[in-house]
Design a protein around this nucleic acid. Structure first.
Lengths: 192, 192
DNA sequence: TTTTTTCATTCACCTAGGTTAATAAAGGTG
DNA sequence: CACCTTTATTAACCTAGGTGAATGAAAAAA
């Protein structure tokens, strides 16, 4: 149950056995079922999560329409950085696309780790840096490519998404309407 | 010359006098003139900069067209995170909009600080977190608002930009053509 | 000053993708 | 199985913003 998270952390820092054992005592396992809402707008996000299994969708509302910002799969980390860092209520939602098992680390615990074990401060820095690189990549995709190019790129870069996520969520992630995605797919099939 | 950077750092961590004195020894002052290119695509960015005075533009090319990702003014930090963190050649450019004085901190020096003074590791984490929040805010603006809404929002949030940056760079930052920005301005003037 | 270059504006035209509405599959559920 | 809800597709139409070309204004250079 803790191997995936240990492997994930060890890509950034090397923990002594005792350090990881201590870390484990701070984690709580949580299970959620498909369609559950893990986070809703207005709630304060006070935790960081590691996804042991399953799939989550991170989204927000613009004029009542859901805008999907990200999908999270097993072996990745997730938090609502805006709310987590500021302590303000979130403007986002997270729902469950496949039954999901999470390991939950509370903000207080994480900050304690930061203070007591400098290696974790480094881990936190690297996580934030990676989050930055990830969203920068996404921003460039969204602002510089046409809808069709974004679709083709997504197939290439994250084919797994197409096996596990309904098409209308993918459209939302590509920042287009489901009808537009259908149109694009048809066009690409027709011309090979 | 070091007061602004000291104030900037002290918003995140509290340094002892000796720590800041040591930090100062790692900084180099650099001056650039309007229109100079500080960073060009293909170069590796090996430094973090603090801007004492002046104004920089961070941009990249898409099909030969310049896309402005960000403007940096005095009292802010800047680096090309992608290149700095990966060590890969940058795909971006930075040019000088107003004569600029920078304080330069080399990657090796920063990493030394990270290792020797855990407070700096924390500072690095917080800088990365802030960079994340900043670009996330920008991404939401670019993907959810119309060109006109982005323009109005920019006037409200960063009026300084309009006093110091030519309009065609602002258009680029808003991810529209200069002609479109003219059209929008005309429309807004007409209807009050 | 005149000349040249750079930047801003305007207009006509075009297209990617949004919108609305209808239809068809595909999944659940009793 | 039949029934109902959720997804996906298609088509007709519309609009925001891109494109290209011309004009004007401002700044820089000579």
């Amino acid at each position: 149950m803790f191997e995936p998270i240990e492997r994930s952390i060890s890509r950034f820092i090397n923990l002594e056995k005792e350090e990881f054992d201590f870390f484990k005592t701070l984690l709580t396992k949580k299970n959620f079922q498909k369609k559950e809402l893990i986070l809703r707008s207005g709630q304060i996000c006070r935790n960081v999560y590691f996804i042991n299994s399953g799939c989550l969708r991170y989204f927000y509302l613009v004029d009542g329409e859901e805008k999907t910002a990200q999908f999270f799969f097993e072996n990745s980390w997730y938090t609502d950085y805006e709310s987590f860092l500021s302590g303000d209520p979130s403007e986002n939602f997270v729902d469950v696309i496949e039954d999901t098992e999470l390991l939950c680390l509370e903000k207080d615990s994480l900050y304690k780790l930061y203070s007591e074990i400098p290696k974790f401060e480094r881990f936190g820095r690297m996580m934030a840096e990676n989050a930055y690189l990830g969203i920068r990549h996404r921003t460039k995709t969204l602002t510089n490519l046409s809808a069709e190019e974004r679709y083709v790129k997504l197939i290439k870069e994250r084919p797994k998404i197409f096996e596990r996520i309904p098409q209308y969520y993918i459209a939302s992630y590509l920042n287009i309407q489901p009808q537009s995605l259908s149109r694009i797919r048809k066009k690409l099939v027709t011309k090979g």
